[in-house]
Structure formats: structure tokens, C-alpha cells
């Protein structure tokens, strides 16, 4: 099945994306390797979030959008007709810019995914909840208040809860759409440490407005500009020796 080529977690081949008649992505071809952190950077409206949301088909929720080209998750084209969205989203989890816990207890927030996928055993659910909260470095803070309403948590805790909730369905890939942009520096640091922990087991793609954050947490960086992928490579190279002048102008703060 491998037929000689590399296995990428996520891949796009000549992908074009349209919001109605407006083209948001132009001919993006990119391979995202497994168990690495890949950062997508670029100015607002450059298409990086749109690109991220291709991989769990969240763009489908917006009426009038169209994808042309191939988007591969584990070498499977996910825009084919027979793709099971439930299964896809179980493999490819997502964390959003604004923390969005359900107005339910902390426990029920994390338990929701596994329950929705049909796990009924109470012991198993409790085990998954604890494991996910530990992975999200939240367990010690909430283990005595699992029945408390999740919306009572602080912003940073809410965001880690959302990460735990995403991890509870055991994805391989975690898409993060500016996960720390609404958080204070300390909460941001916790999220960044968490990302570095998680990359041992997960493929992480993170959209960020903060170039320092991209430099700190990512192994690879992709620079998007006006719907095009300008440059993609190891983070160290992009930030020290970019080959495209527009990349250089952006990371040195000439525009943005």
C-alpha cells in the first residue's frame, strides 16, 4: 500500500478553495509529516485557518464553499463521496480559537466524545476522562471538581479542557486554530508546553498569529500569503534563512 512513497499524516495536492466565487486558497500542495508540530503562519485572511479546516471538513458547515483538488488524510482522499465524516473527525480532532466548553460538567465535557461514539461502560468512560485530563495537564486542577460546570473554569483551563475533550476520542491528528490567542501569557505558556508534550503521540497542526509561538513550538512552518503557500520548511530555516523575500518581510515584521 505504501508503494515506496513516504507516509504523511496529512497531505494536499493542488487544492483550491472557494467561498462562493471568492477563491481563498490557490493550488496548495503540502505534506504534513506524522508526530511533528506544523505551524501555519501568515497575515489575517491569508487562508491559513481555511486550510486547517480542510482536514476535518469543518468548511463544509459554511454554505456555498467548494474544494477542488485532493486532500488526503492517511493517504485517503477525504472529499470523496463515501467518506464517513464521523470517522474522519474521530481521527482528526480540533481545538478552536475561542474556548467552547459545553455548559455541562467538566466530566461530561470530556466524556461527550466517547459517549457519542457509543462507549457505554461507566468504568471505561471514567478511565478515558482521567487519561484525557492528565494528557491535557488539567487533571490535578480539576480532579476534585469534576461535577462543576465547565463554564466556571478560567479561560486557560477552559482551553485545556477543550484539548482534553478533543483527545478523549483518541485522534491521531490535532488541528489547533489559534488556541492561545485569547489567553494571558501564563496560560499561553501552559498550552505551548502541552503542545510539545503531545507531539510525541500526535500530529499537530497549529494556526498562529504569533511568530514567536510558531518559532517556539513548531518543527515545520508554512507561510501563507493571499491564499498561496509561499514557503514551507523546517521552522529553524524559515525563521533564520527564509528563501522568499515575502516570508522574510513578514517574519521581520515589515507587514502583517
Amino acid at each position: 500500500m505504501n508503494n515506496g512513497k513516504d507516509n504523511y499524516a496529512l497531505e494536499s495536492k493542488n487544492v483550491n478553495f472557494f467561498y462562493g466565487s471568492k477563491q481563498a486558497l490557490e493550488n496548495i500542495t503540502m505534506q504534513i509529516p506524522e508526530k511533528k508540530v506544523t505551524a501555519l503562519i501568515g497575515p489575517s485572511g491569508c487562508g491559513k485557518s481555511t486550510y486547517l479546516r480542510l482536514f476535518n471538513r469543518m468548511n463544509d458547515l459554511i454554505a456555498g464553499t467548494k474544494v477542488v483538488g485532493e486532500v488526503l488524510v492517511k493517504n485517503q482522499d477525504i472529499y470523496k463521496n463515501n467518506v464517513d465524516l464521523v470517522e474522519l473527525r474521530q481521527h482528526v480532532g480540533m481545538v478552536f480559537q475561542k474556548s467552547n466548553p459545553f455548559p455541562k460538567s467538566i466530566f461530561d465535557n470530556v466524556a461527550y466524545g466517547p459517549r457519542a461514539h457509543g462507549i457505554k461502560s461507566k468504568d471505561q468512560i471514567a478511565y478515558i476522562v482521567e487519561r484525557s485530563l492528565r494528557q491535557a495537564a488539567l487533571w490535578e486542577e480539576v480532579k476534585d471538581s469534576l461535577n462543576k460546570n465547565a463554564t466556571a473554569l478560567s479561560g486557560g483551563q477552559q482551553q485545556r479542557l477543550c484539548i482534553a475533550r478533543a483527545l478523549a476520542v483518541e485522534p491521531d491528528v490535532l488541528l489547533m486554530d489559534e488556541p492561545a490567542s485569547a489567553l494571558d501569557p501564563i496560560a499561553t505558556q501552559k498550552i505551548e508546553e502541552l503542545i510539545m508534550d503531545l507531539k510525541q503521540n500526535y500530529t499537530i497542526v497549529i494556526v498562529t498569529h504569533s511568530m514567536q509561538q510558531a518559532a517556539r513550538v513548531s518543527d515545520l512552518t508554512a507561510f501563507f500569503y493571499m491564499g498561496q503557500l509561499i514557503e514551507f520548511g523546517p521552522t529553524s530555516k524559515i525563521f533564520t534563512n527564509p528563501s522568499n523575500t515575502r516570508t522574510e518581510d513578514y517574519i521581520t515584521g515589515k507587514f502583517g
Binding site: 476535518n56 469543518m58 458547515l61 465524516l85 464521523v86 470517522e87 474522519l88 473527525r89 474521530q90 480532532g93 480540533m94 478552536f96 475561542k98 467552547n100 466548553p101 459545553f102 461527550y112 466524545g113 457519542a116 461514539h117 477543550c162 475533550r165 478533543a166 476520542v169
Partner: peptide
Amino acid sequence: PTGIRHAVYALGATKWQLVRDH
């Protein structure tokens, strides 16, 4: 909020689960 909807879908829930549970 739409964020809640997105969160539910992103977890792989179906539309019916979204309506019934949320």
C-alpha cells in the same frame, strides 16, 4: 454560540446527536 456547534461536529458527532444532546 456557533462555537458549541463546531465543537460538537469536530468531535465527530452527527447532526441528530447535536440536536438531541446540545
